[in-house]
Protein backbone atom coordinates (compact mmCIF):
# COMPACT_ATOMS: atom_id res chain seq x y z
CA UNK A 1 0.00 0.00 0.00
CA UNK A 2 2.61 2.49 1.13
CA UNK A 3 4.95 1.28 -1.60
CA UNK A 4 2.26 1.81 -4.18
CA UNK A 5 1.88 5.39 -3.04
CA UNK A 6 5.59 5.97 -3.26
CA UNK A 7 5.56 4.41 -6.68
CA UNK A 8 2.73 6.59 -7.90
CA UNK A 9 4.04 9.70 -6.19
CA UNK A 10 5.56 11.34 -9.30
CA UNK A 11 2.31 10.89 -11.17
CA UNK A 12 0.36 12.36 -8.28
CA UNK A 13 2.66 15.37 -8.31
CA UNK A 14 2.13 15.76 -12.03
CA UNK A 15 -1.64 15.60 -11.51
CA UNK A 16 -1.47 18.26 -8.81
CA UNK A 17 0.68 20.40 -11.09
CA UNK A 18 -1.87 20.05 -13.89
CA UNK A 19 -4.73 21.07 -11.63
CA UNK A 20 -2.67 24.01 -10.47
CA UNK A 21 -1.87 25.04 -14.05
CA UNK A 22 -5.52 24.88 -15.10
CA UNK A 23 -6.58 27.04 -12.16
CA UNK A 24 -3.64 29.41 -12.42
CA UNK A 25 -4.33 30.13 -16.08
CA UNK A 26 -8.12 29.88 -16.32
CA UNK A 27 -9.01 31.89 -13.20
CA UNK A 28 -6.99 35.01 -14.11
CA UNK A 29 -8.34 34.78 -17.66
CA UNK A 30 -11.87 34.47 -16.29
CA UNK A 31 -11.34 37.51 -14.08
CA UNK A 32 -9.83 39.47 -16.95
CA UNK A 33 -12.72 38.60 -19.28
CA UNK A 34 -15.58 38.39 -16.80
CA UNK A 35 -14.95 41.69 -15.03
CA UNK A 36 -15.49 43.98 -18.03
CA UNK A 37 -18.44 41.85 -19.15
CA UNK A 38 -19.97 42.02 -15.67
CA UNK A 39 -19.41 45.77 -15.54
CA UNK A 40 -21.26 46.16 -18.85
CA UNK A 41 -24.11 43.98 -17.59
CA UNK A 42 -24.38 46.27 -14.57
CA UNK A 43 -23.83 49.51 -16.49
CA UNK A 44 -26.53 48.82 -19.09
CA UNK A 45 -28.87 46.99 -16.72
CA UNK A 46 -32.09 48.41 -15.26
CA UNK A 47 -30.34 49.65 -12.09
CA UNK A 48 -27.15 50.63 -13.85
CA UNK A 49 -25.44 53.93 -14.49
CA UNK A 50 -26.65 54.23 -18.07
CA UNK A 51 -29.43 51.73 -18.76
CA UNK A 52 -29.59 50.49 -22.35
CA UNK A 53 -32.41 47.93 -22.25
CA UNK A 54 -31.92 46.50 -25.75
CA UNK A 55 -28.15 46.03 -25.67
CA UNK A 56 -28.45 44.70 -22.14
CA UNK A 57 -31.05 42.16 -23.22
CA UNK A 58 -28.75 40.82 -25.95
CA UNK A 59 -25.76 40.58 -23.63
CA UNK A 60 -27.86 39.10 -20.84
CA UNK A 61 -29.24 36.40 -23.13
CA UNK A 62 -25.78 35.56 -24.50
CA UNK A 63 -24.45 35.15 -20.98
CA UNK A 64 -27.40 32.95 -20.02
CA UNK A 65 -26.87 30.70 -23.02
CA UNK A 66 -23.17 30.36 -22.30
CA UNK A 67 -23.94 29.65 -18.66
CA UNK A 68 -26.48 26.92 -19.37
CA UNK A 69 -24.03 24.66 -21.21
CA UNK A 70 -23.07 21.73 -18.97
CA UNK A 71 -19.30 21.77 -18.77
CA UNK A 72 -18.93 18.36 -20.33
CA UNK A 73 -21.01 19.33 -23.38
CA UNK A 74 -19.11 22.57 -23.75
CA UNK A 75 -15.84 20.70 -23.59
CA UNK A 76 -16.86 18.57 -26.56
CA UNK A 77 -18.84 21.17 -28.47
CA UNK A 78 -15.97 23.59 -28.80
CA UNK A 79 -13.32 21.10 -29.80
CA UNK A 80 -12.82 22.73 -33.25
CA UNK A 81 -12.42 26.10 -31.63
CA UNK A 82 -9.97 24.69 -29.10
CA UNK A 83 -7.88 23.19 -31.90
CA UNK A 84 -7.86 26.53 -33.67
CA UNK A 85 -6.76 28.36 -30.55
CA UNK A 86 -4.14 26.11 -28.97
CA UNK A 87 -3.36 23.78 -31.86
CA UNK A 88 -4.36 20.63 -30.00
CA UNK A 89 -7.49 19.08 -28.53
CA UNK A 90 -5.86 17.07 -25.80
CA UNK A 91 -3.80 17.96 -22.77
CA UNK A 92 -3.94 20.60 -20.09
CA UNK A 93 -3.72 23.51 -22.54
CA UNK A 94 -6.75 22.17 -24.40
CA UNK A 95 -8.81 22.01 -21.21
CA UNK A 96 -8.01 25.57 -20.27
CA UNK A 97 -10.00 26.80 -23.27
CA UNK A 98 -13.41 25.39 -22.28
CA UNK A 99 -12.68 26.10 -18.62
CA UNK A 100 -12.13 29.76 -19.43
CA UNK A 101 -15.12 29.96 -21.75
CA UNK A 102 -17.25 28.50 -18.99
CA UNK A 103 -15.77 30.79 -16.37
CA UNK A 104 -16.02 34.15 -18.12
CA UNK A 105 -19.84 34.42 -18.10
CA UNK A 106 -19.90 32.74 -14.68
CA UNK A 107 -17.66 35.42 -13.22
CA UNK A 108 -19.43 38.17 -15.18
CA UNK A 109 -22.65 37.29 -13.31
CA UNK A 110 -20.81 37.51 -10.01
CA UNK A 111 -19.45 40.93 -10.92
CA UNK A 112 -22.86 42.16 -12.04
CA UNK A 113 -24.51 40.92 -8.87
CA UNK A 114 -21.82 42.31 -6.58
CA UNK A 115 -22.03 45.75 -8.21
CA UNK A 116 -25.83 45.84 -8.24
CA UNK A 117 -26.19 44.91 -4.61
CA UNK A 118 -24.07 47.86 -3.48
CA UNK A 119 -27.08 50.11 -4.01
CA UNK A 120 -27.46 53.58 -5.39
CA UNK A 121 -26.18 55.65 -2.46
CA UNK A 122 -22.48 55.94 -3.16
CA UNK A 123 -23.09 56.05 -6.91
CA UNK A 124 -25.33 59.06 -6.47
CA UNK A 125 -22.86 60.73 -4.16
CA UNK A 126 -20.11 60.25 -6.74
CA UNK A 127 -22.26 61.54 -9.58
CA UNK A 128 -23.17 64.56 -7.46
CA UNK A 129 -19.44 65.19 -7.03
CA UNK A 130 -19.12 65.35 -10.80
CA UNK A 131 -17.51 61.94 -11.29
CA UNK A 132 -17.39 60.36 -14.74
CA UNK A 133 -19.07 56.98 -15.12
CA UNK A 134 -15.66 55.37 -15.42
CA UNK A 135 -14.59 56.97 -12.17
CA UNK A 136 -17.76 55.85 -10.41
CA UNK A 137 -17.01 52.28 -11.42
CA UNK A 138 -13.29 52.22 -10.72
CA UNK A 139 -13.09 54.42 -7.62
CA UNK A 140 -16.37 53.74 -5.89
CA UNK A 141 -18.15 50.58 -7.02
CA UNK A 142 -15.19 48.27 -7.51
CA UNK A 143 -13.58 49.55 -4.31
CA UNK A 144 -16.64 48.65 -2.27
CA UNK A 145 -17.20 45.39 -4.17
CA UNK A 146 -13.69 44.00 -3.69
CA UNK A 147 -14.43 41.85 -0.62
CA UNK A 148 -17.47 40.33 -2.37
CA UNK A 149 -15.45 39.81 -5.55
CA UNK A 150 -12.75 37.95 -3.63
CA UNK A 151 -15.53 35.74 -2.27
CA UNK A 152 -16.75 35.12 -5.81
CA UNK A 153 -13.27 34.21 -7.06
CA UNK A 154 -13.06 31.74 -4.20
CA UNK A 155 -16.34 30.06 -5.14
CA UNK A 156 -15.31 29.94 -8.78
CA UNK A 157 -11.92 28.40 -7.96
CA UNK A 158 -13.54 25.71 -5.85
CA UNK A 159 -15.92 24.75 -8.67
CA UNK A 160 -13.02 24.61 -11.07
CA UNK A 161 -11.06 22.20 -8.97
CA UNK A 162 -13.98 19.81 -9.32
CA UNK A 163 -14.39 20.52 -13.05
CA UNK A 164 -10.81 19.48 -13.52
CA UNK A 165 -11.99 15.90 -12.94
CA UNK A 166 -13.76 16.07 -16.29
CA UNK A 167 -10.63 17.38 -17.91
CA UNK A 168 -9.40 13.80 -17.95
CA UNK A 169 -11.74 13.09 -20.85
CA UNK A 170 -9.53 15.06 -23.17
CA UNK A 171 -6.30 14.06 -21.47
CA UNK A 172 -6.14 17.25 -19.46
CA UNK A 173 -5.04 15.46 -16.36
CA UNK A 174 -5.32 16.94 -12.93
CA UNK A 175 -6.06 15.51 -9.55
CA UNK A 176 -9.70 14.69 -10.33
CA UNK A 177 -8.66 12.79 -13.41
CA UNK A 178 -6.13 10.90 -11.31
CA UNK A 179 -8.89 9.82 -8.95
CA UNK A 180 -11.01 8.54 -11.83
CA UNK A 181 -8.20 6.75 -13.58
CA UNK A 182 -6.82 4.88 -10.60
CA UNK A 183 -9.86 4.67 -8.37
CA UNK A 184 -12.57 4.00 -10.91
CA UNK A 185 -10.91 2.28 -13.84
CA UNK A 186 -8.27 0.30 -11.90
CA UNK A 187 -10.12 -0.29 -8.64
CA UNK A 188 -7.20 1.07 -6.65
CA UNK A 189 -9.40 2.39 -3.90
CA UNK A 190 -6.61 3.62 -1.62
CA UNK A 191 -5.27 5.80 -4.42
CA UNK A 192 -8.71 7.20 -5.04
CA UNK A 193 -9.11 7.96 -1.36
CA UNK A 194 -5.74 9.66 -1.39
CA UNK A 195 -6.69 11.76 -4.40
CA UNK A 196 -10.01 12.70 -2.82
CA UNK A 197 -8.27 13.68 0.41
CA UNK A 198 -5.91 15.85 -1.62
CA UNK A 199 -8.84 17.51 -3.36
CA UNK A 200 -10.56 18.14 -0.04
CA UNK A 201 -7.35 19.68 1.26
CA UNK A 202 -7.00 21.82 -1.85
CA UNK A 203 -10.61 23.01 -1.75
CA UNK A 204 -10.41 23.75 1.97
CA UNK A 205 -7.20 25.68 1.50
CA UNK A 206 -8.74 27.81 -1.25
CA UNK A 207 -11.95 28.32 0.69
CA UNK A 208 -10.32 29.24 4.00
CA UNK A 209 -7.76 31.60 2.51
CA UNK A 210 -10.37 33.17 0.22
CA UNK A 211 -12.75 33.80 3.10
CA UNK A 212 -9.97 35.21 5.26
CA UNK A 213 -8.79 37.55 2.54
CA UNK A 214 -12.34 38.69 1.83
CA UNK A 215 -12.93 39.44 5.49
CA UNK A 216 -9.62 41.27 5.84
CA UNK A 217 -10.47 43.50 2.89
CA UNK A 218 -13.97 44.30 4.13
CA UNK A 219 -13.90 47.51 6.18
CA UNK A 220 -17.64 47.89 6.69
Amino acid sequence: MFERIVEIYPELLTALGQTFTMIAVAIPLAIAGGTPLGILLYLWGPDGLSPRPKVHKVLDTAVNIARSFPFLILLIAIIPFTRLLVGTTIGTAAVIVPLTINAVPYFARFVEQNLTQLGQGTVEAALAMGAKHRQVISHVLLVDAIPALVGSVTIMTVSFISYSAMAGLVGGGGIGDFAIRYGYYRYETPLMVLAILLMIALVSLVQVSGSRLSRALDKR
Binding site: G121, T122, A128, G130, A131, V140, V143, K219, R220
Partner: peptide
Protein backbone atom coordinates in the same frame (compact mmCIF):
# COMPACT_ATOMS: atom_id res chain seq x y z
CA UNK B 1 -20.05 70.88 -18.58
CA UNK B 2 -22.54 69.40 -16.14
CA UNK B 3 -19.77 67.54 -14.30
CA UNK B 4 -17.87 70.80 -14.12
CA UNK B 5 -20.94 72.56 -12.70
CA UNK B 6 -21.40 69.80 -10.13
CA UNK B 7 -17.94 70.46 -8.71
CA UNK B 8 -19.45 73.68 -7.50
CA UNK B 9 -22.38 71.97 -5.77
CA UNK B 10 -21.71 69.83 -2.71
CA UNK B 11 -24.31 67.37 -1.51
CA UNK B 12 -24.95 65.42 1.67
CA UNK B 13 -27.43 62.60 2.20
CA UNK B 14 -29.53 61.03 4.91
CA UNK B 15 -27.50 57.82 4.82
CA UNK B 16 -24.11 59.53 4.35
CA UNK B 17 -23.17 57.48 1.27
CA UNK B 18 -19.50 57.17 2.16
CA UNK B 19 -17.28 54.60 0.45
CA UNK B 20 -16.94 51.99 3.21
CA UNK B 21 -13.68 50.52 2.01
CA UNK B 22 -11.86 53.84 1.95
Amino acid sequence: QLREARHNIGMIFQHFNLVNNL
